[in-house]
């Protein structure tokens, strides 16, 4: 089948960039979207042109590196799917598509379709951890976890940090990502000791990275390849308000005992 791609080409973070049109005359419907780009790049390199830079790693939908805006939708038209898991059979012969990188102040474009998502890493560093003793692993069932909690935590933990939520949000908000990371620990017993501090640190870090705010419109959950619901964002809001409300200054009583 014939596919026409209008791809965002940008040399480096500071140069302007523009759409460039490529006609691919014989794309197999069995190819994944990224394999189609591989074919295009082979072709470009053979002609001595600069290949299109795009990020990819696992190609099995679990690493989160392959985000592209395909015709204005993050990860393309198939819901609950990363670009690497999107196959060309979902397109029609003669389709003309626009490919763009994620666009957000916090995600500067490095080159072509690849952005720098390290702002996400800094949000995780701010609070996406629990404190445990190292050593031999505890028994899996040593701490009872109610099944609904385990399932909700697992659903949130499915977040692969791809950034589609930020890309699709008209406000470039990272609320769904941050909420997923806050909740997957906050819903489990092991996450309780740091729960109030975690949500405050991670929300403040999300704000400091200049992501936008949530307007509850739901574009993020529509494009999330792991189908994480915005119920998760409500949980983050509740935890944040509760943590601010119940914050107390450090106790000065009984210091130096023993």
């Amino acid at each position: 089948m014939k596919i026409i791609l209008n791809i965002w080409r940008q040399k480096n973070p500071s140069s302007p960039g523009k759409l460039v049109r490529y006609v691919l005359p014989s794309v197999s419907e069995h190819m994944s979207f990224l394999e189609m780009l591989d074919v295009l790049n082979e072709d470009l390199m053979q002609k001595g042109d600069d290949p299109v830079t795009f990020e990819h790693d696992c190609r099995e939908g679990i690493c989160g590196s392959c985000g592209i805006m395909i015709d204005g939708v993050a990860h393309g038209p198939l819901p609950g799917t990363t670009v690497c898991q999107l196959h060309m059979r979902h397109f029609k012969d003669g389709d003309e598509l626009v490919l763009e990188p994620w666009r957000a102040k916090a995600f500067p474009v490095l080159k072509d379709l690849m952005v720098d998502r390290s702002a996400f890493d800094r949000i995780i560093q701010a609070g996406g951890y629990i404190s445990v003793n190292t050593g031999s692993a505890p028994d899996a069932n040593a701490i009872p976890v109610p099944k609904p909690d385990a399932e909700r935590a697992m659903d949130a933990a499915a977040c692969i940090g791809c950034g589609a939520c930020v890309a699709a949000c008209p406000n470039a908000s990272a609320s769904l990502f941050t909420a997923a990371k806050v909740s997957h620990l906050g819903l489990l017993p092991q996450g309780q000791p740091e729960r109030p501090q975690r949500v405050i640190s991670m929300v403040n870090s999300m704000n400091a990275e200049l992501f936008g705010s949530c307007t509850n419109i739901g574009e993020c959950e529509a494009v999330c390849p792991k189908r994480i619901p915005i119920e998760t964002i409500a949980l983050m809001h509740r935890d944040y308000l509760k943590a601010c409300w119940s914050f107390r200054p450090e106790s000065t009583a009984s210091q130096g005992a023993g």
Binding site: N6, W8, L19, M69, D71, G72, V73, A74, V98, E100, R103, A104, K105, A106, A168, P170, N171, A172, S173, L210, F211, G212, S213, T215, I217, G218, E219, E221, A222, V223
Partner: peptide
Amino acid sequence: LNKQARPSHYEKLTAAGSS
């Protein structure tokens, strides 16, 4: 804040799930 968070616009943006 939201305007600052998205300084460059998409050539094409399609609504996928919002009213």
